[in-house]
Design a protein around this nucleic acid. Sequence first.
DNA 1: GCAGTGAGTTGTATTTTCCAACTTACTCGC
DNA 2: GCGAGTAAGTTGGAAAATACAACTCACTGC
Lengths: 147, 147
Amino acid sequence: MAKGVAPRECSVADTLQVVGERWTLLIIRELLYGVRRFDGIVRNTGAARDILTTRLRKLEEAGIVRREPYSEHPPRYEYHLTAKGRELSDVLTVLMKWGDRHLNTADPPVRWIHVCGERLDPVVVCAHCGRPANEGARPIGRGALTP
Amino acid sequence: MAKGVAPRECSVADTLQVVGERWTLLIIRELLYGVRRFDGIVRNTGAARDILTTRLRKLEEAGIVRREPYSEHPPRYEYHLTAKGRELSDVLTVLMKWGDRHLNTADPPVRWIHVCGERLDPVVVCAHCGRPANEGARPIGRGALTP
DNA sequence: GCAGTGAGTTGTATTTTCCAACTTACTCGC
DNA sequence: GCGAGTAAGTTGGAAAATACAACTCACTGC
């Protein structure tokens, strides 16, 4: 990174700096599922307890997770997502779709039933025209250069 | 992982197994931007050259990247995304949106102009009803249990 | 009391990652 | 034709992150 040019400026890279470490997105998955306690997250993710501790502290620092005491004396906390954290649900949704399509073709481990009653088929579209987001979009701005 | 219960079965976890390592999604970002060569990817991501080599080999093995020779003798290759790899663009799009909203509020490094002419505002919706995907969806299936 | 639960903490072994330097095989300018 | 530059790696050693199991502390329930 030192000599010559800097890497591309990019919100993807910045986001991954916050949630891109191993286990982090799985922790957020558990919180979205409603699992609130340490041992539950350990069980469902398979992460080591020490790693989980450091990840949860970092997520709290980043404003993605909030810690709420449910017992003093043995000081114990429940973990909740903040609004900022809940907005990561779209990331998880899209990752799940890709995995369902390309890795678990036969039978997906989880299906989601949408509020409309149908099985959820998530698509990323442009809020203005409703067409797929990846349909002929072009990047502009200082991070868009490709030398 | 050994004693007691297994972690949650989940396509998110499976996807991250393939593209969740550090640098991997940034490599895919570069390929989506049209950068095809090793040194370009090194420059734009900031990844170490040895790491990049192993990541590209793994991605090739996973069927996400295809390697095409453009010179023999010094054997040199260009890297392309397969259809499977291009489908990860939605993942990047959604990660970018979160970063734009929560980390680069002032001025996003890249804006995308959609084919409709407007600035792209990507939203994840249900393909059936068009409403936001995260609106009251409920999980079912063997990976949906929350003990 | 005594087993069990819950949330960590600690110590050590193993894996990854980082970084800089080196290599090979050209191509280009003069 | 000769040195500089480009391109895509490979190598070796240091530094950091991860994994794993065992241990602690403060209860709770029987």
